[in-house]
């Protein structure tokens, strides 16, 4: 399943068939470079990276869930809640920032575990369980912050900085989380179990995979990734906002799906998700540069999501 083995053993056309989203990204970049002189500048590309970072981090977490055949609608809300918990406990409650950061991570994990418990033991459909969590987490974020932004502790807010002019920290965090995702998916027991569960849950169970326990791991990872995404977002804005990351769950899901994962489970890769998130960010950025109105941008992005998945479906059909 690793890219490296595929590259060596397959013809270019087969490689392209498996990495259609990457080809799409390349086409998009070339087109925008031709259309706008401002696109292919270092500053702008760094900007795109920063814009992609939070979506990508959330999407990496969602990738785990989607591979098991589930869905996580709560990541945007959990991101906001985690950031609020960090900011609140550091400023209002006076906790030292490392403790506050750990607490934020724990909150993300906990939200994921609750999702998983509802799905694995309560037998709720993942859509419903995580939709409920979306409401609860967003609500708690508002309750805790009383509806107003809370400033982030300064040390943590460095996560939104750019080192030496050319290294935005959010991009570094994104790459780091992406590598973790790839390693978990390809090298670890929970990762391989996710593919098996998403591919055929009953076969996985009868092969001795502890399906429920692995679902706990899966959703907990998604929650933790959401927490990281939330903190990075708040750091960029220098304050945690209860309404932050609204709708990001849909962008995250879109990135995963554009990256070639199947909503019915069993398929998906970290690299695909990464490319999916980049496509969304490049598209938004490019449309801004071309002065397309924000209203039309939504239309374009909707069409692109549908097209990406449509092409992917057709490609798979052709290769079968």
């Amino acid at each position: 399943m690793l890219v490296s083995t595929n590259v060596l053993s397959k013809r270019p056309s087969a490689w392209l068939a498996e990495n259609g989203s990457l080809a799409g990204l390349v086409v998009l970049v070339v087109a925008l470079a031709l259309l706008s002189g401002d696109f292919l500048t270092v500053t702008n590309l760094l900007n795109v990276g920063v814009q992609a970072a939070v979506t990508a981090i959330l999407a990496f977490g969602v990738t785990f869930v989607i591979i098991t055949g589930g869905i996580d609608l709560s990541v945007g809300a959990v991101a906001a809640l985690s950031a609020i918990v960090l900011a609140w406990s550091a400023t209002e409650a006076g906790l030292p920032w490392p403790l506050a950061a750990l607490l934020a991570l724990a909150v993300g994990l906990l939200c994921g575990l609750v999702n998983a418990a509802l799905v694995a033991y309560g037998k709720l459909p993942p859509f419903i369980a995580t939709l409920a969590m979306l409401g609860v987490a967003r609500g708690l974020a508002l309750v805790l912050s009383e509806g107003s932004p809370i400033p982030m502790p300064e040390t943590v807010a460095h996560l939104g900085d750019t080192i030496a002019e050319y290294l935005p920290v959010p991009v570094l965090v994104m790459v780091f989380m992406g590598v973790i995702t790839a390693v978990v998916l390809n090298r670890t027991y929970p990762g391989r179990a996710m593919y098996a569960i998403g591919g055929n849950e009953e076969a996985a169970r009868l092969s001795g995979i502890k399906v429920n326990r692995q679902k706990l791991v899966t959703y907990a990872l998604s929650g933790a990734f959401a927490a990281v995404g939330g903190v990075v977002l708040a750091s960029r804005l220098a304050s945690a906002q209860p309404q932050a990351a609204s709708g990001y769950e849909l962008d995250a899901i879109a990135a995963v799906v554009i990256g070639g994962a199947s909503l019915s489970g069993g398929k998906g890769r970290a690299f695909g998700t990464f490319v999916g998130a980049l496509i969304l960010a490049v598209l938004r950025n490019g449309l801004n540069l071309l002065s397309v109105s924000a209203f039309w941008q939504q239309v374009v992005i909707g069409v692109v999501i549908a097209l990406a998945v449509l092409l992917d479906t057709l490609r798979r059909k052709a290769s079968n």
Binding site: M1, Y195, G199, N200, A203, A204, I209, G266, K267
Partner: peptide, 16 residues
């Protein structure tokens, strides 16, 4: 329905 992960490879299934 119960024995195989159809979308996965032979190696992956054998090692389940």
């Amino acid at each position: 329905g119960q024995g195989l992960v159809l979308g996965a490879g032979i190696g992956e299934n054998l090692g389940l």
